[in-house]
């Protein structure tokens, strides 16, 4: 009889201990980045807004403005394009444009694409680049990020549209709306979920290094055009973090700090957007 209660006790302790471990690991990660990176940034905030010098990765002068700009130039167009395509495909999957067999097939391929390691996308894009005999450039970086973000955004939008009550669709049809017009109403109702999905996709895109490191050129110059080499924050962090020059490593901590900050802001914005867009959603059901 006693043994049962003992077992209950032990496992309760184990459960709380493992939750504690998970929380601590997050605190350690955030703490280490904020402390180390913040330290560097407080002493030398100019690294954020200076262009890199000629020997930047070898401990030369300069900052990592090129990586911040490169990240922005790659992620924003990629997210916009992936968002539009993903929204369209999600509407296609949910509304009466397709039948359940086609939808099931497309959903399965989306799930597979979602799980595909980002390095596979990188290598795929690289093979395409080799085939068309083009060096790594900003445009290739944008395209690979579209590929990476598309499945995530589409699946989130899909789930959001699935949650729209059927009555809404039925009443739109009953007053004679076409499928296109109905989709617009349904899409508005699902807007909070879709916005969250787009921002999650964007967060994934801005933090991913393995896909863009092969395709965007990864040089240390300012991005100057669609067909010129560009680099992104995660690539820079990867190149700098294991450098043997301490000053270069410090820049990696500062870059990691900025990256965490950007991802954190995206997370916050997605929560705010969800609240803002939920004005289209019926309440009090």
């Amino acid at each position: 009889m006693k043994l049962r209660y003992l077992e209950e006790r032990i496992f309760k302790i184990l459960i709380i201990f493992s939750v504690f471990l998970v929380m601590t690991s997050l605190v350690i990660i955030i703490g280490a980045v904020l402390f180390k990176g913040g330290n560097v940034l407080i002493h030398n905030p100019r690294v954020l807004i200076t262009a890199p010098g000629p020997r930047y990765l070898l401990g030369g002068e300069g900052g990592f403005l090129h990586a911040i700009l490169g990240s922005i130039y790659m992620v924003i167009p990629a997210t916009l394009i992936a968002g539009v395509i993903g929204f369209g495909v999600a509407l296609f999957l949910q509304s009466d444009y397709s039948n359940s067999r086609i939808s099931g097939f497309i959903r399965t391929s989306l799930d597979i694409l979602w799980g595909t390691p980002s390095i596979v996308y990188g290598i795929f894009m690289l093979t395409v680049l080799i085939f068309i005999q083009q060096r790594g450039c900003l445009l290739a970086g944008i395209s690979v990020l579209i590929l990476l973000e598309l499945p995530i955004i589409t699946r989130y939008a899909d789930e959001a549209i699935k949650a729209v009550p059927n009555e809404l669709k039925d009443s739109a049809y009953s007053v004679g709306a076409t499928r296109y017009e109905t989709s617009r109403i349904v899409g508005k109702y699902a807007l909070p979920g879709i916005a969250a999905g787009i921002l999650i996709g964007m967060g994934r895109g801005i933090g991913d290094a393995a896909s863009v490191i092969f395709t965007s050129g990864a040089g240390s110059v300012m991005p100057s055009g669609l067909f010129e080499s560009a680099t992104a924050l995660p690539i820079l962090i990867f190149q700098q973090a294991s450098s043997c020059y301490p000053s270069v490593r410090e820049h990696a901590y500062a870059a990691a700090f900025s990256l965490v900050l950007i991802v954190g802001i995206l997370n916050l914005v997605s929560r705010l957007l969800v609240r803002k867009f939920s004005k289209y959603v019926m309440r009090g059901k």
Binding site: V22, I28, I29, A209, Y253, V260
Partner: peptide, 20 residues
Amino acid sequence: FIDILAGIPSVVFGVCALLV
């Protein structure tokens, strides 16, 4: 908390591992 952990980029995990 877990959502935040899921959103942290993988290079940041790498940097923290090198640091800690």
